[in-house]
Amino acid sequence: MADNATAGSTAQNSDLRNGVTHIVWDWNGTLLNDTDANLASVNRLCAEFGRDPVDLDYWRSIFRRPLIPCYEELLGRPLTDGDWQRIDTTYHDHYKGLLPSCDLADGVLEVLRAWNAGGGTQSLLSMASHDHLVPLIADRGLTEHFTRVDGRRYDAEHDSKAEHLVEHLRAQDADPAATVLIGDIDDDAHAATAAGAHAILVATGMMSRTRLEATGHPVAETPAEAVAMLYR
Rank of each mutant, 00 (worst) to 15 (best):
H92T: 06
I182L: 05
P218L: 00
F49H: 07
K96I: 09
E73T: 00
R64T: 14
P223T: 06
D57F: 15
S101G: 06
A105F: 14
W25V: 01
A114F: 08
T222A: 02
M127V: 15
R51F: 11
A197M: 06
A5K: 15
D34E: 07
Y91H: 09
N4A: 14
H158Q: 13
L74R: 11
D139W: 06
H145G: 01
E48I: 12
Q12K: 10
G118H: 14
V24F: 08
F49G: 08
Y95E: 02
G205F: 13
L125G: 04
I87G: 03
V108H: 05
E167N: 10
C70G: 09
T35A: 13
D103K: 07
L109H: 02
G141D: 02
P100R: 10
R77Y: 01
I185G: 06
L98T: 01
H198V: 01
R232Y: 13
E72P: 07
G107K: 07
A2S: 15
N28Y: 10
M207Y: 01
D106P: 05
L31T: 00
A7Q: 04
Q12R: 04
R60C: 03
N33R: 13
R140K: 10
V108G: 01
L133D: 03
H158F: 15
R232M: 14
L133Q: 04
A189F: 11
S41Q: 12
V134K: 07
I87E: 01
G19Y: 03
A192N: 04
L109E: 01
D26T: 02
T143N: 04
A2Y: 15
H145E: 13
N116H: 00
D26A: 00
D83K: 02
L142R: 04
A105H: 00
A197N: 00
Q12C: 13
H217P: 11
S101V: 15
R153T: 14
R60L: 08
A7M: 12
Q122S: 07
E221H: 05
L109D: 03
L169P: 04
D159Y: 05
A199C: 08
D175A: 11
A171V: 13
P78Y: 13
A195L: 02
L142W: 07
E48K: 12
P135H: 05
R64M: 13
D83T: 06
